[in-house]
Design a protein around this nucleic acid. Sequence first.
DNA 1: GAGAGTGGTCATGTTTTTCTGACTTATTGC
DNA 2: GCAATAAGTCAGAAAAACATGACCACTCTC
Lengths: 103, 103
Amino acid sequence: MTTLPINSPESCPAESLLKLMSGKWKPQIFRLALDGPLRFNTLLRQLPGTSRQSVSVALKELEQAGLLEKKTIRLKPLHIEYILSERGQSMIPVFRQLEDLLK
Amino acid sequence: MTTLPINSPESCPAESLLKLMSGKWKPQIFRLALDGPLRFNTLLRQLPGTSRQSVSVALKELEQAGLLEKKTIRLKPLHIEYILSERGQSMIPVFRQLEDLLK
DNA sequence: GAGAGTGGTCATGTTTTTCTGACTTATTGC
DNA sequence: GCAATAAGTCAGAAAAACATGACCACTCTC
């Protein structure tokens, strides 16, 4: 049984995840995304103390990281939703595993 | 099969890990710890662009987080080592799992 | 057509994080 | 005794992150 190296400089998954999720609000936003689609103004109300700009940037970065997907539901009365992407969903088991360790 | 909730406000393991590891240098320091014991001045050389203070604070916080252990090897010629704690080692499989996802 | 809601952007200021460089205490080797 | 190495600490400056409040274009309801 050959265990793969997890400490090579090129590939450090921990660091990658930490970069993708680092910031004051990104983890909370990601967690809320587990419950269902997110909307901009709803998020603002769900995260007391945050700002329009912070939420805006966080959503953009989570999207660029491939963890969330931005969907335009309707244009007439503007309705946009951010949902967990496939990649985002694939991280759920990792978090579940962490849950056991970090107790 | 009942899957446990990972999105409750009280327990968010992702956020916990992110807090423990957040900062500009902590992830890299942790990764280097996977290779073996760390020493203060060696770390400074291994992390170009960092500062004495940043390394000092990062080591202290990783220690307080229970991920690293500080060992005084010798006193006469001062020799201190930081090694992966049990808790730190318990996270290796999580990182390995992430490695597959984040490619 | 006034007021509220949608999803934002932008300039500015504050707060937090990080870096810089000087200084410390002690030991080893020359 | 002088330079080097060990492992740091401390004050201050610079940089990055975050918050505040104003503003925009659009739609919907009254």
